[in-house]
């Protein structure tokens, strides 16, 4: 593939974490949620309803392998193995391909549930900006979905769209947001919603002498606007929370909040784990049901 050199710019670091204060061996219920997305995969392990471990990895070319990789990474250093997990829910685009999952649940339901845990029962509007899709979800105080909309046909407003720009400008994706905020004056947003065409537009702007920050600002602005129009199709009300990878992009978040007139809640955990977290929560309910039947 012709992209070896350019590949470095979209590369964000894979990560993992676990809570060393919890002794899982004494646990009654160990559940897991595995979210296999088209760009990234996450695994979340919960012990008796408490967040125990998670991982954030890049999805490979094979869904089952990506699921196992994410799970193993989350478990690394904990002494736990996949066999110790009592119930696993698979979610995300590759949810039917999680080999050790007991059930697959849509990412819409999981994101709402996960956001409810991560941000609290006041959350009503959740925006998930994923690798290849953009989801707008309205939920109730229990994290149950009351309306949703997903756009995965078009790269505009997705992580991949952002990666294309990071590549074009030679800016590491993790720095794109902050760099885009280093402008004195907000430029006009790029006129094309289509990433392919926006890319040509951006190339022309660069040739005309625009500095990188300005081009990024124009693109983040267009992306924020496009996302707001999606959000407005469902009931937007506070509290508002953003999950997914782009939540880490301050350039888009700040512009989004400004256009919506709503501030997003501060995340306490990695925003990319919301789906997997929701899956692990669903797993708990399903495990209880399963045990009650016996």
């Amino acid at each position: 593939m012709a992209e070896q050199q350019q590949k470095e710019y979209w590369r964000w670091t894979e990560s993992r974490w676990h809570n060393k204060d919890i002794d899982w061996k004494k646990a009654d219920m160990i559940t897991a949620g595995i979210d296999v997305g088209s760009v990234s995969s996450q695994a979340v392990i919960m012990v008796d309803g408490e967040l125990y471990a998670y991982s954030n990895t890049r999805t490979g070319s094979n869904s089952p392998d990506s699921a196992i990789k994410a799970a193993k990474m989350a478990l690394d250093g904990t002494g736990m193995s996949i066999d110790d997990i009592h119930y696993t829910v698979g979610t995300g685009y590759g949810r039917v391909n999680v080999p050790f999952a007991n059930r697959a649940i849509t990412e819409i339901a999981c994101h709402a549930r996960g956001a409810n845990y991560m941000y609290g029962p006041t959350v009503r509007t959740v925006l998930d900006m994923g690798g290849q899709d953009c989801k707008a979800i309205h939920c109730d105080e229990k994290g149950k979905v009351t309306s949703f909309l997903m756009n995965d046909k078009c790269a505009a407003g997705t992580g991949r769209g952002m990666e294309v720009f990071a590549d074009l400008l030679g800016v590491p994706i993790t720095e794109v947001g902050d760099l885009s905020l280093q402008v004195d004056e907000e430029p006009e947003p790029v006129s094309s919603t289509c990433v392919v065409f926006a890319k040509s537009e951006a190339s022309a702007l660069l040739r005309a002498g625009w500095p990188k920050e300005k081009v990024l600002a124009a693109y983040c602005s267009a992306m924020a606007h496009r996302v707001v129009t999606l959000l407005e199709k469902i009931n937007v009300e506070k509290d508002f929370a953003i999950t997914g990878g782009i939540a880490k992009n301050k350039g888009v978040v700040v512009r989004l909040e400004k256009e919506l007139g709503l501030k997003a809640l501060e995340p306490r955990y990695d925003t990319q784990i919301a789906g997997a977290l929701g899956g692990a929560l669903f797993a708990m309910g399903l495990l209880r049901k399963q045990r009650a039947k016996k």
């Binding site: 149950k144 309306s147 046909k153 078009c154 505009a156 289509c194 496009r226």
Partner: peptide
Amino acid sequence: MIANYGYKDGSGDWFI
């Protein structure tokens, strides 16, 4: 629950 199926692209909003 209101489920919106479809997409938004450069030409507009196309949802059921």
